[in-house]
């Protein structure tokens, strides 16, 4: 009996130390990052105007410019689903690959499946129907018959001085 009280205090002390150490580790795990962060170089926000639709300052304005229903920077039609299409499709490839193609909803679905099978495109989840609706609505095939007329409106007319030419 006489020996036991002698053992208890050091044991309690060890237990307390262990508890304290555990608490410290827990605290570090919880808040360590933010504490350490203040000793490090803080993450620097990019030295450019943040994206604010219609902020109208600096170069960013051009980025969000919509002209005649077209998002100027990408050439994509500005319509419902635009943000998701832009964010998803142009993460990997040129928007030109979208704007130059025409297909039905089925055709666009096939292209997405092909990209998923061959090009590492991820599962689009809930965005897929939004993307498909955007594409099938805005980039649907037009019936141009066996051959389209020259797009006269798109021609840049110029004066050809033939005397100078010959």
């Amino acid at each position: 009996m006489s020996k036991r009280p002698d053992v208890l205090p050091p044991m309690l002390a060890i237990l307390n130390l262990a508890l304290m150490a555990f608490a410290l580790v827990l605290l570090f795990l919880l808040f360590g990052d933010s504490v350490m962060q203040s000793f490090r170089n803080r993450p620097v926000p990019m030295d450019m105007t943040a994206y604010r639709p219609g902020s109208g300052t600096g170069g960013m304005a051009d980025e969000d410019q919509i002209k005649d229903g077209i998002h100027v920077a990408t050439g994509l039609i500005y319509a419902e689903g635009f943000d998701i299409v832009r964010g998803t499709c142009t993460a990997c490839h040129s928007a030109k690959l979208v704007t130059q193609n025409r297909a039905t909803r089925e055709g666009w679905t096939e292209m997405i499946r092909w990209m998923q099978a061959k090009q590492g495109l991820w599962d689009l989840g809930a965005n897929e129907p939004i993307i498909l609706s955007y594409l099938a609505t805005n980039y649907a095939p037009e019936d141009i018959g066996r051959r389209a007329s020259i797009d006269v409106d798109a021609i840049e007319w110029y004066v050809l001085d033939l005397e100078k030419e010959q």
């Binding site: 832009r86 964010g87 993460a91």
Partner: peptide, 10 residues
Amino acid sequence: KGALTALSLA
């Protein structure tokens, strides 16, 4: 410029 917008959306 512009990259941020698209990437943030993505």
